[in-house]
Design a protein around this nucleic acid. Structure first.
Length: 572
RNA sequence: GUACCCAUAGCUCAAUUGGAUAGAGCACCUGACUACGGAUCAGGAGGUUGCAGGUUCGACUCCUGCUGGGUACGCCA
């Protein structure tokens, strides 16, 4: 049970004491961290919400409530304030005890609430035959953080890269490949060449109906299993995967599965049949559609009039397969906002079919350039590879000036962690549901609220720790009590205790930014601590306590950054 | 036309899902001791939360109507 839950249980007991007949509401009593430390450490706002139910003034409820509270170790002070806030101040001893619990726990006090539960995470999902560009980074980075957060809570996670590897574009691509390919370019930059071939073929198809018809024929051949086209298609996939791998590698992202849409292609007919059998799908203008007017949505086409299948069908087949194979309680999709309607339709149909998993779409706003939308046609696409290169190059310059004595290979490793971390953090530290205008300076910020700020805080802690060890080699810190005397020490301890609750909230709301905000706040508090009190020159006792506290901050920062997919080098 | 999303300091974003005096970073202005890493810290200035109503003890948050921007909407994925 985490710290907040202990307080909630205590308040609930008190409430039952004070209002014996009203136990019904006891489940809804929660505490939150105070925004302003003058109001204590935690606050409970339940009294105001209960005023109507209890027919009493909130202030009176709170006072009676507090008066009935049983004695409890660890609580310094409880008081009623304002309209009926209950403010709780903890003793330093209680904070210190909880810190020691965290210190001795491999998950820093976070309970394994996900044990025995399964979630499927569908994220990244780039299209075959197109290079990954900056528009792909958000799904990849947010999805991966959700993946890590769930695993940390003990969930079994099935991370699936649902590649766009099937569909009508392959007819055009095959035509482009046959007629326009440049062998040299194909060897040097295969995916860029494939994209060029597709674009060229697409443009030709708009002016040349015969070309378009030929592309359709190639697509039909592919779908019917024509050996030659199948081999070409497989080659496109292989080339694309080879180009994605180094990027995933640099981003430190791994999947359990990479099942593209093609994986489900033999199940699509059965899905449409199922929808017909259940009376959900019907014929309309030669196509099979599911009507969703009653749900306030437009119709969803599940089979085209030419017999081909759509995206919705594919996603339904995917849900079915995942249910049967993994029995997840939840499937989470991380994509951009344009797919909101699509998923709403899919989820609605899945529910109509009685499918059990909770289906959640975590969406994020599109990325744009200051000059407007980017598009392949206009050639203003920024490739992901270039973004990562640029980030590492900028970080390397910083490392070289800050740590000139480091070996070149260490500098490169640190630059990688700092540069990639900066990019990931830029995406993870904000609520994703707004459009992002990409600028180099924003994506690669290395000061203020940024990953390097957090990494820097860790490096300073490590440095203090090492100096302490060399000066006091025999001192075992775990034997030294934590003393939380200074206001900033207490503040820091309080922040630390909030780690488990923060993780749980981030997972509950599927928002890694909650964790990022917390880590930044913690690092800021630490930096203030670091800058304003002495460590190694402090008196014995206080000195050990401070170094030990710093160690715990480092553990939390390192763990938290790891959950965001960001590395923490020992020095930067 | 219909639906969904967004709008907070000059800029980029927070605000514990209805809580206390709306907080950070960037940029700007002042300061910081050989001491442990200045990628930092202490402070200053910067706000009618797009507009108008409503709901209640209490609204950036919920409801209604506007304005401006984005996205999607029967044979793409």
């Amino acid at each position: 049970m985490i710290f907040e839950e202990q307080l909630e249980r205590w308040l609930t007991e008190a409430f039952v004491q004070a209002f014996p007949g009203e136990a019904v509401v006891a489940g809804r009593i929660g505490v939150t961290a105070t925004a302003d430390e003058r109001n204590g450490d935690y606050q409970c706002n339940a009294a105001m919400g209960l005023a109507r139910l209890l027919q009493m003034k909130p202030r009176d409820i709170a006072e009676r409530w507090v008066a009935a509270a049983p004695k409890r170790d660890g609580i310094e002070d409880v008081e009623v304030a304002g309209p009926g806030f209950i403010n709780i101040r903890l003793t330093s001893t209680a904070l210190a005890q909880w810190l020691i619990v965290m210190e001795n726990d491999s998950t820093l006090g976070t309970p394994a609430v996900g044990r025995g539960r399964t979630v499927v995470l569908d994220y990244s999902s780039p299209n075959v035959a197109k290079p990954m560009h900056i528009g792909h980074i958000r799904s990849t980075v947010i999805g991966n953080a959700l993946d890590r957060l769930h695993r940390f809570l003990g969930f079994r996670v099935v991370a699936d890269n649902h590649l766009g590897d099937w569909g009508t574009q392959f007819g055009l691509l095959i035509m482009g490949y046959r007629h326009f390919r440049d062998e040299h370019r194909l060897r040097e930059q295969p995916v860029e060449e494939l994209e060029r071939l597709y674009v060229k073929s697409y443009e030709r198809s708009r002016a040349d109906e015969e070309w378009l018809a030929a592309a359709r024929r190639e697509l039909v051949k592919l779908q019917q299993g024509d050996a030659e086209n199948l081999a070409l298609w497989q080659q496109f996939i292989d080339l694309s995967m080879q180009s994605f791998e180094p990027i995933y590698d640099r981003l430190n992202v791994t999947f359990d599965l990479a099942r593209g849409e093609s994986y489900y292609r033999d199940q699509l007919g059965a899905v449409v049949q199922l929808l017909r059998d259940r009376g959900l799908a019907e014929e309309s203008e030669g196509a099979q559609v599911v009507r969703l007017e009653a749900e306030g949505m437009p119709v969803c086409i599940v089979q085209k009039s030419d017999g081909g299948y759509n995206y919705a069908t594919s996603d339904l087949a995917t849900i079915k397969q995942r249910m049967e194979e993994f029995a997840p309680e939840r499937i989470i999709y991380v994509t951009d906002e344009r797919q909101q309607l699509h998923f709403k339709q899919c989820f609605t149909i899945a529910h109509k079919l009685g499918w059990a998993p909770s289906l959640v779409h975590v969406w994020f706003g599109l990325m744009r350039l200051p000059e407007g939308t980017f598009s392949t046609r206009e050639g203003n696409v920024i490739k992901l590879e270039r973004l990562l290169d640029e980030a590492e190059a900028r970080a390397l310059k910083l490392v070289q000036t800050a740590s000139p004595d480091m070996t070149a290979s260490d500098q490169a490793a640190v630059a990688r962690a700092v540069g990639i971390g900066a990019i990931k953090y830029a995406d993870l530290s904000q609520n994703p549901q707004s459009m992002i205008t990409f600028t180099w300076d924003k994506a690669l910020a290395m000061d203020g609220n940024s990953a390097p700020y957090l990494q820097y805080a860790c490096a300073r802690i490590n440095s203090v720790r090492d100096k302490f060890r060399s000066r006091f080699p025999d001192q075992d810190l775990t034997d030294c009590p934590l003393v939380l005397q200074e206001a900033v020490e207490r503040r820091l301890a309080l922040r630390l205790t909030r780690f488990p609750g923060t993780i749980m909230r981030a997972v509950e709301l599927l928002r890694p930014s909650i964790l990022a905000d917390y880590l930044y706040d913690l690092a800021q508090t630490y930096s203030s601590f670091y800058q304003n009190v002495p460590f190694l020159k402090a008196p014995a006792g206080v000195r050990e306590s401070r170094v030990r506290l710093g160690g715990l901050v480092a553990s939390v920062l390192r763990q938290g950054l790891d959950l965001l997919g960001i590395e923490t080098p020992d020095r930067i």
